[in-house]
Design a protein around this nucleic acid. Structure first.
Lengths: 151, 151
DNA sequence: GCCTAATGTTGCATTATGCAACATTGAGTG
DNA sequence: CACTCAATGTTGCATAATGCAACATTAGGC
């Protein structure tokens, strides 16, 4: 590493991603309104993942299923999340039969809180992007998406 | 939000950064060789921060000083880190007088392990960047750096 | 030299997590 | 349909990580 300009670029990308992680994790210890980092992450996953189940969350976040079970029960207690009724999922026009596992869904309050939390976080991103042109932002988003799309 | 193309771009950036966080945190629960995520993060901070002290780490990572104190003692026990002697820091050509707080430094073993861990992580980044041109990588790194440079 | 603030440590309680065992449920097969 | 097995989710328990508070030590300023 560090032998070619390409290596230098890779090193710089790694370094910057590390900085993004550091800042994100530092922020996660501070922010708890309207949602904690974990709450937000889980709600977001459920909102964006068709037929999300506890085991999907455990896989996506490399967490033990027991941890996820408890986290979900916390969200249920907070009335942010509910299990879909099997009748609902069978009749839902956009959901197939429920299959294995209990499907999670956001409550109305869950949607609302997630939207509120997302807006707050996006404001921070917006401020960091002050001075960027629209094209630069679009290009940056595309590069990030391309990077994330890789397996 | 979501009213203009700029808003859409900001939302996309946020979404992608969120994905980077999720993946990073998921990996952090799995990887522990040669260093855990925390070990790597702390070593990296000490290696890249002139005159790094425990309180600097606590601030940078939004951790309580007691947590950092214990983390550092773990690193010391693992012979990855040591406190600089006050004589060393006074005589060091690149360090000013030590001032408040104990300055941290990597041991030889710490440097070696950090390099090894960094190489492993950068390999992962390299694979994710497969198919990118050198210029694309450089541009991506620059955009990330620009994003991170904002306050 | 004295005082105060900054820094780092330690005890204790709390929180989050993983492992293991288990119960429940869904899928597949005959 | 019955049976078997795997997948899924829950619960008990132990462990790890963290924050708060109190305190000791050290450095800086007057």
């Amino acid at each position: 590493m560090n032998n070619t300009p390409r290596d230098g670029g890779i090193e710089a990308v790694f370094s910057q991603l590390r900085e993004i992680s550091r800042r994100s994790n530092a922020r996660s210890r501070i922010i708890d309104h309207p949602l904690t980092f974990v709450e937000h992450s889980l709600l977001r996953f459920i909102a964006t993942t068709e037929g999300a189940r506890a085991t999907d969350i455990a896989t996506a976040f490399s967490l033990n299923r027991s941890t996820v079970s408890r986290q979900i029960n916390t969200l249920i207690r907070l009335e942010l999340v509910q299990y879909q009724d099997s009748e609902n999922s069978a009749e839902s026009p956009t959901h197939g039969p429920s299959g294995r596992g209990k499907i999670l869904a956001l409550t109305e309050r869950g949607h609302s809180q997630l939207a509120s939390s997302t807006a707050a976080h996006q404001n921070v991103v917006q401020e960091r992007l002050t001075g960027w042109t629209d094209a630069e932002i679009t290009s940056f988003a595309a590069a990030l998406a391309r990077y994330n799309a890789a397996e």
